[in-house]
Design a protein around this nucleic acid. Structure first.
Lengths: 249, 249
DNA sequence: TCGCCGATTATGCCTAGGCAATTCAGCAGG
DNA sequence: CCTGCTGAATTGCCTAGGCATAATCGGCGA
């Protein structure tokens, strides 16, 4: 144990990438190149530590993270193996709509189409898990990219969970951004589906009625309560959700 | 240090949940309940270790994982703060189709509709990043749940990246499963959109032409190369992608 | 008052151990 | 032949330290 709490100055392999990352990369390299194939055993903590000349905890961290990421599977006594991955989970980034649009270089526009207190449909009530006398704020907004309709947002807010929303006009600020700044969220639940455009949605989004829309529904939770439920509809032809996982180039 | 390498028998707070998880939960509880709000400072490694009576590494692991998950933000010297989260990423689980169907209790069925060598369209060629003389295998398959069409799969495989595919009939095994067992993947790129059903897709999926379909496209990579590109189409009305992030009840 | 530079401090990574929990394999007994 | 027990292998979690690095804050000089 000399410098940096024992990191040997000898190797210093890749300048200064942390040791545990070097190990992760080495393992990934074996898998990527096909030397280790799905189902094959991977050396255990102790063996890895010996090969890399590091403490077992360091090797352990590398292997644990790989397991967390689904690259390998670990079981006590049975040892570690390269995961037989099905298709791995898919990370979709759903950024704030205004930032998303501006990131593409387009000009962001926002219009409040309607705002109503108490217009609570039965299904909205159910989705908000609202009691019979719960009050809501209903909003219909349109987000534009370069003056063209980009996303139609229909939202219900439980006024008991976010009372301040009642006194906000939402004429100049989108409800998403307002809520992010005023209500602490914890969790969310999403649902993605394809739908045919209703007449109203078609009119606002400037597509034909019946045209395919990509619809994203989100419920946002705070302490077991649904704060808000929102339906985001995009013209299917002009909109995609993009995502990447693992490594590629 | 007494039992379990020093874990004090005294508290043993929650029976036997690991110490680092207890710390994570405690921090999350502060945030969930609104005591710590976005932007507020979070005690550092040393302080947490002191409060919980554990080693700094244990506190460090809890805080590091929270940072990895995007719950808190950490900066040297500046300390840790509750993250100002925008909308967090959205984890969609895309399981293997046969397992997915069987998980719902339905009977899984598979049919190979067409198989062709060399039928490479220009767009497929581009998406596979194929040279002008690259050879591909094209497949059209249908996955059924309880005898009803569930997913239409159209797939191109780069035969240079997966030569063995040429000699596989794919009559009894789906390409997804076959590839998982024969070609080591590393990364994937997904794209989700809504589309109107083409006449051919409508016929296979037993919907009206023009009906909304939820389409998932996936490119799978291995060492900078695209191994396979697949288009998975689902009847929009009968299919949704479901997901949850964070915690809710 | 402004800008630079060192001291301070919190995070990040590491070691070298040790105990706990899980589970596989083999063996004994019914 | 099956069942249950036991030993051993392996991962998982923990401690108690130490050095490295980054970023902020004060002080000092111009």
């Amino acid at each position: 144990m000399s410098d940096r709490g024992g990191r040997r100055s000898a190797a210093e392999s890749a300048e200064s990438t942390p040791r545990y990352l070097q190990i992760k990369q080495a393992v990934l390299e074996q898998i990527r190149s096909g030397v280790w194939r799905p189902g094959d055993p991977v050396p255990g903590d102790a063996e890895v530590a010996r090969r890399f000349g590091c403490a077992r905890m360091t090797a352990h961290r590398a292997l644990r993270e790989l397991a967390d990421e689904g690259v390998i599977e670990r079981r006590r006594r049975a040892g570690s193996r390269v995961a037989l991955r099905t298709t791995r989970s898919l990370l979709v980034d759903v950024p704030r709509i205004d930032l998303e649009i501006e990131a593409t270089g387009a000009e962001y526009g926002y219009r409040l189409l309607a705002r109503s207190l108490g217009r609570t449909t039965h299904s909205a009530r159910a989705r908000l898990r609202l009691g019979p006398d719960g009050r809501t704020l209903w909003l219909l907004c349109l987000h534009l990219a370069d003056q063209r309709p980009y996303q139609l947002e229909e939202r219900w807010i439980d006024l008991a969970a976010a009372p301040a929303a009642e006194h906000e006009s939402f004429r100049d600020i989108g409800p998403n951004r307002w809520l992010l700044e005023h209500v602490p969220f914890v969790g969310a639940e999403h649902l993605i589906r394809a739908e045919a455009a209703s007449r109203r949605a078609a009119r606002h989004l400037e597509v034909e009625p019946g045209a395919p829309l990509l619809v994203l529904e989100r419920r946002t939770f705070r302490e077991q309560r649904v704060v808000t439920w929102v339906r985001l509809a995009h013209p299917g032809a002009r909109y995609v959700l993009r995502t990447a996982s693992g490594e590629h180039g």
